[in-house]
């Protein structure tokens, strides 16, 4: 799966510190596979709460692939289930003022593009999302533009940009290209820090 451009409405979730417990409540972590994770997405906010329709369920945003949120989105628990749920629900891009770091890596590993924006752009984008304007994301040029609005250049590391653009399989690549380097690292460490190579579980 690769990612290059995306045109979609953005679901405005104007909150800071949305944690992964909120995105994917802990009790659903008992499941051992990722299929159907979307059903648990924001479960306690959507299903549990008193008859108000959660913004991601609003008919206007049906099929929206972008989620727009405030600061520190995806903070807290490392549970990748949160990202699986967002992906399963249809999100391919999340725009926020900042992200929980592990969540950010989990996004990259699941082909979701996380975009970090600054405060001033946040206001503009929030209004645009609320006015149902469509967002245009181009990962090649690292640009985000909104219908009738500004064009924002966003930052993403070259490594992450590549992974998303090419849909790279890191494990496959490393096994192919890096095995010899790993071998020699291990050989050297066995010499310099032999205590890390004792067959440890014989001793307990």
């Amino acid at each position: 799966m690769s990612f290059s451009t995306l045109i979609s409405k953005a679901v405005p979730l104007a909150e800071d510190n949305v944690d992964t417990d909120a995105i994917y409540p802990g009790r659903f972590l008992l499941r051992i596979d990722k299929q159907g994770a979307g059903a648990c997405l924001f479960y306690d906010k959507r299903v549990g709460s008193n008859n108000t329709v959660h913004v991601i369920d609003h008919p206007t945003f049906k099929d929206a692939q972008i989620l727009l949120a405030g600061e520190n989105f995806g903070c807290g628990s490392s549970r990748e289930q949160a990202v699986w749920a967002l992906h399963d629900f249809g999100f391919r891009c999340i725009i926020a003022k900042s992200f929980g770091e592990i969540f950010y890596s989990n996004c990259i590993n699941n082909h979701i593009l996380p975009i970090v924006i600054v405060d001033n752009d946040y206001q503009v984008l929030m209004s645009a999302a609320e006015s149902l304007h469509s967002f245009h994301v181009d990962l090649n040029s690292k640009q985000l533009s909104v219908q009738g609005g500004p064009t924002i250049t966003f930052d993403i590391s070259q490594q992450h940009q590549n992974m998303l653009l090419k849909g790279l399989d890191e494990i496959g690549l490393q096994l192919k290209n890096d095995s010899a380097d790993i071998d020699s690292f291990e050989a050297a460490q066995k010499q310099s820090q032999p205590w890390l190579w004792q067959p440890i579980f014989e001793s307990i």
């Binding site: 490392s78 990748e80 990202v83 592990i102 890596s105 989990n106 699941n110 494990i171």
Partner: peptide, 10 residues
């Protein structure tokens, strides 16, 4: 440091 499930696989 903490990692996600995909990174555990890696």
């Amino acid at each position: 440091f903490g990692i996600g499930a995909s990174e555990c696989e890696k």
